[in-house]
């Protein structure tokens, strides 16, 4: 049965006491790995009747990201370390001092040979999955915002062919890199996801929290939150900005509607690129499906929690998600 976003239904809801910031899934299975606010990594099977979390290991702070490259799991944390794990037996392989500041996201290349890490030192680093060797440093994001405060490098995504990599920072700048030689291919301006309040509160909120290349590599989608009126609260609509690549021309932006507020924390295209799923939240969660070709929201709904981690099954009919105090499995063909 073909996946139908309008048929979205929660099939499994697993309560937790922690916040699960990121999720990686073993391809073709329902085995997921999650990074937690309790400084640990866990493995669960979200098809199990009563999924039980198996502890794999830990870090010295929030585990903000996990990436699965073949059978190797790589985790990153606010403790600035990257750790390699054998996903089959949970054994630690190595840990390295990855960055000078907090690691925000790790993504694995489609061939599983590289992982890219981004951190508040504003550097994207490419690492060899096989031996943990640092292959390249990509520097193109400013350390300080235009308003003289520390910036953050939140998001990264590989193109489906693995040849290009996009990185996104707090101010809404995207750098696109050629993975083979580390050269910067271009930049995108998605500053609509960054709010600086110069008058009332004099600080900022927002930033690029998620990125995705379309399967054909001709679109880059940037996820975050729209302009916020009262920056005490993450309650502006979720915002996507869609660019044509490589022209870097902005095609359109769109925002979640109604009570669906907060940031797009995760994005994933289905196999043929006919739609994109995005999820995130603020004080509550949301999920939205978008036809990227025409910029229309196909379907949107509240989520059981603020979603931080997401994986779309290869078939496109199941979504695995982690977030605030929960894990969820959605089915799209019920």
């Amino acid at each position: 049965m073909a996946a139908d976003p309008t048929k979205l239904k929660v099939a499994k809801d697993v309560g937790r006491t922690d916040v699960l910031f990121h999720l990686a899934r073993q391809p073709g299975t329902s085995r997921v790995f999650v990074g937690s606010s309790d400084f640990k990594l866990y493995e669960l099977d979200l098809q199990a009747e009563k999924p039980e979390a198996k502890e794999i290991g830990g870090h010295g702070s929030y585990v903000t990201s996990v990436a699965l490259a073949g059978k190797t799991l790589v985790s990153g944390s606010y403790d600035c370390k990257l750790s390699w794990w054998d996903s089959e037996n949970g054994k630690s392989i190595r840990s390295v001092d990855g960055h000078a500041k907090r690691i925000r996201m790790i993504v694995a290349s489609p061939d599983g040979k590289l992982v890219a890490s981004v951190a508040d030192d504003m550097i994207c680093k490419l690492w060899s999955v096989a031996d943990g060797k640092l292959m390249r440093e990509l520097k193109g994001h400013d350390a300080i915002t235009p308003h003289n405060y520390p910036s953050m490098l939140y998001a990264a995504a590989f193109s489906r062919d693995g040849k290009q990599l996009a990185t996104g920072d707090k101010t809404g700048k995207v750098c696109v890199w050629n993975v083979a030689d580390g050269k910067q291919l271009g930049t995108l301006d998605a500053s609509g996801v960054y709010t600086w309040d110069p008058t009332q509160r004099r600080h900022s909120i927002g930033g690029i929290r998620s990125l995705a290349f379309s399967p054909d590599g001709k679109r880059i989608v940037v996820g975050g939150m729209g302009k916020v009126g009262n920056i005490d609260h993450p309650d502006a609509p979720g915002r996507l900005e869609v660019f044509e690549w490589p022209s870097a021309k902005k095609l359109y932006d769109l925002q979640t509607e109604g009570k669906l507020k907060g940031m797009f924390e995760q994005l994933a295209f289905n196999a043929d690129g006919s739609w994109l799923v995005g999820a995130g939240g603020g004080y509550a969660g949301f999920i939205a499906f978008v036809d990227v070709n025409n910029g229309k929201i196909i379907f949107q709904d509240s989520a059981p929690m603020h979603v931080h981690g997401l994986s779309l099954a290869e078939s496109g009919d199941t979504i695995y998600a982690s977030g605030h105090n929960k894990l969820v499995r959605w089915e799209l063909n019920a």
Binding site: D120, P150, M152, Q200, D232, P234
Partner: peptide
Amino acid sequence: RAWWDSHGENFETHLELVTE
């Protein structure tokens, strides 16, 4: 120095304001 009322995104707000 206003405004520290970080009902949301406390850690990002404090990263800015405490650093300052």
